[in-house]
């Protein structure tokens, strides 16, 4: 059946096509797809489904081999994966999908020449490879301390960035663009798409650990636990803070690793490594001031460390 795309656009240079296949969320790819059209055949649905599955269940979309001649279907698989992910109907699936797409794109950016990087930056309204307008920077920069504005070079309304930093910022911009554009509202969803979505949904892990929502945890910690329970992605500083707190509060390493399994880009081995690392190094609990500087303090309890939080009830 027809959904409005046919890939007949012979004017397109192969270079552009390859760019569009790598960065299917770019404006040029969208234009390309709009001019083209696509027949939804079994092969394409399968390809789109694999893409969605890789992203949602395995957290990683393999990159296309450079020699791949089927670049059109690569772009189409992105469009189809988006429909499928939208049909799964879970915020967590969308988050995971957007993260995996963004990571896929950033791995291309790392290995490619400056031309593509420049072109993609432009796609997000960034005209120079080494400086980002500050308000753009604020909307795309990851909430991690090395990217905190105060630690960057800012002059004349522009933040200076290295190539690596630009790629990381673009990765975040891509993630936001994709997650912000989903779920798609589709009037009549083709049955193949529905079925693919249903298939993936049934394979998604149920959150294993019931998160104890108890009243005597510090509000910041409580807030992070609730976010985890909702399957939201926690920034690095948040995981760090939460892990140290839970270790200090006597939770076992394995339990903490499990706790993170609801997060959209969960990888058991990486999480295990990170938690183990924090345990081994014996990091001390970050102060409330530091937590606040990461934007994670939600209450202002008037104490110095979350460890001295004694609940809202006084006495005892």
């Amino acid at each position: 059946m027809k959904v409005g795309y046919i890939f007949v656009s012979p004017q397109n240079h192969f270079m552009d096509l390859s760019f569009n296949a790598r960065y299917p969320f770019s404006k040029s790819a969208r234009e390309y797809a709009e001019n083209a059209g696509l027949e939804l055949d079994f092969g394409l649905v399968e390809k789109g489904k694999r893409r969605a599955e890789d992203a949602v269940l395995r957290k990683r979309i393999p990159s296309i081999a450079d020699s791949s001649f089927d670049l059109e279907s690569e772009i189409a698989s992105y469009a189809i994966a988006r429909m499928i992910v939208s049909q799964i109907g879970m915020g967590q699936a969308i988050e995971s999908y957007a993260i995996a797409e963004a990571k896929r794109a950033s791995s291309y950016l790392k290995s490619e020449g400056d031309e593509s990087l420049k072109a993609l930056a432009k796609d997000f309204g960034v005209d120079s490879e080494n400086a980002i307008p500050v308000l753009k920077y604020l909307s795309y920069s990851p909430r991690e301390s090395p990217y905190k504005l105060v630690n960057m070079k800012l002059a004349d309304g522009k933040v200076s960035v290295s190539k690596g930093q630009l790629i990381r910022v673009l990765e975040e911009a891509i993630r936001l663009r994709i997650s912000g554009s989903l779920p798609l509202k589709i009037e009549r969803v083709p049955p193949e798409i529905k079925k693919a979505a249903e298939d993936i949904r049934s394979q998604m892990p149920k959150p294993e650990v019931k998160i104890v929502v108890s009243g005597d945890r510090p509000p910041c910690v409580q807030h992070l636990l609730e976010k985890l329970a909702r399957g939201e992605n926690l920034p690095h500083a948040a995981r760090w803070t939460l892990t140290i707190y839970l270790l200090k509060a006597g939770m076992k390493e394995g339990e903490i690793v499990k706790l993170f399994s609801t997060s959209p880009d969960y990888s058991e081995s990486i999480t295990r490594y990170q938690v183990g690392y924090i345990l081994k190094k014996g990091y001390s609990m970050p102060s409330c001031r530091l937590i606040d500087s990461h934007g994670l303090c939600v209450y202002k309890c008037g104490i110095r460390s979350p460890l001295s939080y004694r609940g809202t009830k006084t006495g005892r």
Binding site: L138, S139, S141, S145, K148, L149, V150, N151, L154, S293, H294, G295
Partner: peptide, 15 residues
Amino acid sequence: QRREITDYITGKGLE
């Protein structure tokens, strides 16, 4: 985002 701006201006979170 506004908080990032005040943190910059007040030097908070500087490392």
